[in-house]
Amino acid sequence: MSFLNDVLSPVESLSSRDVTILVVGIVVVLSLPGVWRTLRHVVTIVHEGGHAFIALAAGRQLSGIRLHSDTSGLTVSRGRPRGFGMIMTAAAGYTAPALVGLLGAWLVSLGYTLAWVWGFVAVLVVMLMKIRNWFGAWVLLATGGIIGVIMWFGPTTIHVWAGTALAILLLVGSMRAVVELGRSRSRGARTTDADMLARITVLPAVVWVAGFFLVTGACTAGGVWLLLG
Rank of each mutant, 00 (worst) to 15 (best):
residue 18 D to F: 02
residue 140 L to Q: 03
residue 200 I to L: 09
residue 198 A to N: 08
residue 60 R to M: 14
residue 132 R to L: 02
residue 121 V to W: 01
residue 211 G to P: 11
residue 100 V to R: 02
residue 97 P to T: 06
residue 121 V to D: 06
residue 97 P to V: 05
residue 181 L to D: 00
residue 29 V to T: 08
residue 4 L to K: 07
residue 22 L to K: 11
residue 127 M to C: 08
residue 10 P to M: 14
residue 157 T to V: 10
residue 127 M to K: 00
residue 225 W to Y: 14
residue 177 A to R: 06
residue 82 R to G: 08
residue 158 I to N: 11
residue 123 V to M: 08
residue 92 A to Y: 00
residue 27 V to K: 05
residue 155 P to E: 11
residue 106 W to I: 02
residue 113 T to L: 04
residue 17 R to I: 07
residue 51 H to V: 10
residue 111 G to N: 10
residue 32 L to Y: 06
residue 62 L to V: 14
residue 155 P to G: 10
residue 22 L to S: 06
residue 188 G to W: 15
residue 52 A to E: 01
residue 171 L to I: 04
residue 31 S to T: 09
residue 212 F to P: 01
residue 22 L to C: 02
residue 77 S to P: 05
residue 15 S to M: 05
residue 159 H to Q: 04
residue 180 E to S: 13
residue 217 G to P: 01
residue 191 T to V: 07
residue 143 T to E: 06
residue 211 G to R: 07
residue 177 A to D: 10
residue 41 H to A: 01
residue 90 A to Y: 03
residue 48 E to R: 01
residue 31 S to I: 00
residue 93 G to L: 10
residue 178 V to C: 13
residue 113 T to V: 14
residue 128 L to H: 08
residue 150 I to C: 05
residue 19 V to E: 03
residue 123 V to F: 09
residue 36 W to D: 03
residue 76 V to H: 09
residue 70 D to R: 12
residue 38 T to P: 00
residue 191 T to L: 15
residue 5 N to P: 00
residue 183 R to I: 15
residue 207 V to Y: 10
residue 5 N to V: 06
residue 27 V to C: 14
residue 159 H to E: 00
residue 132 R to N: 13
residue 206 V to G: 06
residue 10 P to Q: 07
residue 204 P to T: 15
residue 98 A to V: 00
residue 12 E to Y: 11
residue 196 M to R: 14
residue 122 A to C: 10
residue 219 C to V: 04
residue 197 L to D: 07
residue 75 T to F: 03
residue 114 L to H: 12
residue 92 A to M: 04
residue 229 G to D: 12
residue 55 A to H: 00
residue 131 I to F: 01
residue 52 A to K: 01
residue 1 M to D: 07
residue 183 R to M: 15
residue 176 R to C: 05
residue 62 L to D: 15
residue 52 A to F: 05
residue 57 A to P: 04
residue 160 V to P: 00
residue 23 V to E: 04
residue 155 P to M: 10
residue 67 L to Y: 04
residue 144 G to D: 12
residue 30 L to Q: 07
residue 66 R to A: 12
residue 228 L to H: 14
residue 227 L to Y: 03
residue 218 A to D: 13
residue 24 V to H: 05
residue 169 L to W: 04
residue 2 S to Y: 08
residue 16 S to G: 05
residue 74 L to F: 05
residue 26 I to N: 05
residue 25 G to P: 10
residue 92 A to F: 02
residue 193 D to E: 13
residue 26 I to W: 07
residue 45 I to H: 00
residue 24 V to T: 06
residue 81 P to Q: 09
residue 30 L to D: 02
residue 54 I to N: 00
residue 22 L to E: 04
